[in-house]
């Protein structure tokens, strides 16, 4: 036999129900309003974005067929030959991938160095001049808001085709992104050592070197590695606008319908990106582990 919960007297029950009902209704109205706004935005965007579902479904078969096209024909009996034919340009592509990695590395290093030298000026706790801080922050904001491809396009016009504009574009974007992160790290440090060192009569540079750098270095390295990972992806498409790396060959093979080349190059890029992801993750965990131990 189960117990029956005693019913409240009718008027009190009515009052509670009404209050609950009103609260739920208010929330429903809010959700409904939000839904309407969302629907309106979707409609507007669909119009502006020239969404054509009929065309989409009529042509959707092309997507699997395209994927099918770029997958090479590999026959078990002639696997060696087929692989060799698929990756006919392996050496060349690997060299281009190497160039892509080098672009990412140099861009990250250059941008990281700029970010390190600027972040202390942008940090509220170390920069003494509010005007300098404001200026540095705006510059960093500009550097990370303008997409790196746009910088690359402009630099291609200025420096000519090749990896040079690619490196510079990535470096500028990295300066902006890392500069902001670094200055946030610096703003979160313990200020007591800073006071202690500057009270001995050390210069600003010495204070930063001995009281700030030991506290922030591992975080800087971790963010730098994360950025390197992002920059490898970025460098892979720099070639789309003529700024060096493997992207140039990829866009050409897509545009000229060299199907098997597309998959070959894509696979190289995906594999490299995954290896870099794993490697940087390992390194970052090792860094964090070192931090915990010591």
């Amino acid at each position: 036999m189960s117990h029956v919960i005693a019913r409240l007297p009718e008027p009190r029950l009515r009052a509670l129900e009404d209050a609950y009902g009103a609260a739920v209704a208010a929330k429903r109205r809010q959700v409904l309003l939000g839904g309407l706004v969302l629907a309106a935005l979707v409609g507007l965007s669909a119009w502006a974005g020239e969404v054509d579902l009929a065309k989409f479904f009529a042509n959707l078969w092309r997507f699997p067929s395209y994927i099918g096209d770029i997958v090479p024909t590999l026959r078990l009996a002639h696997l060696g030959e087929d692989l060799a034919e698929w990756y006919w340009g392996l050496g060349y592509w690997l060299r281009l991938m190497g160039e892509t990695l080098l672009i990412a590395y140099l861009g990250t290093m250059l941008g990281g160095l700029c970010a390190i030298s600027l972040c202390f000026l942008a940090a509220a706790n170390l920069s003494r001049s509010a005007r300098v801080r404001w200026l540095v922050r705006r510059v960093l904001e500009f550097c990370r808001t303008v997409p790196e491809i746009v910088f690359a396009l402009i630099f291609v016009a200025a420096f000519g085709l090749g990896p040079v504009p690619g490196v510079l574009a990535i470096a500028i974007h990295t300066t902006g992104a890392l500069g902001k992160l670094f200055s946030e790290v610096v703003e979160n440090i313990d200020m007591k050592p800073v006071e202690g060192v500057s009270a001995t009569g050390a210069t600003w540079l010495e204070t930063v070197r001995f009281a700030v750098l030991p506290q922030v270095l591992s975080n800087f390295a971790s963010y730098g590695l994360l950025r390197f990972e992002i920059n490898v992806r970025g460098a892979a498409v720099m070639g789309f606008v003529g700024a060096g790396g493997i992207g140039q060959d990829l866009i050409e093979s897509i545009r000229k319908f060299y199907y098997s080349d597309v998959s070959a190059i894509l696979l190289i890029i995906i594999a490299t990106v995954m290896v870099i992801d794993l490697a940087t993750e390992r390194l970052r965990h090792a860094l964090i582990g070192m931090e915990r131990r010591s």
């Binding site: 974005g49 969404v51 065309k55 989409f56 959707l60 892979a236 990829l250 545009r255």
Partner: peptide
């Protein structure tokens, strides 16, 4: 995730043609 959005755009252009729809996809 490993394929950049620009590469996806190139692939979708093959499906729905040039224009913002390919960008959305």
């Amino acid at each position: 995730r490993g394929v950049d959005v620009l590469i996806w755009a190139l692939i979708w252009i093959n499906v729905v043609g040039l224009g913002p729809f390919a960008g959305i996809l």
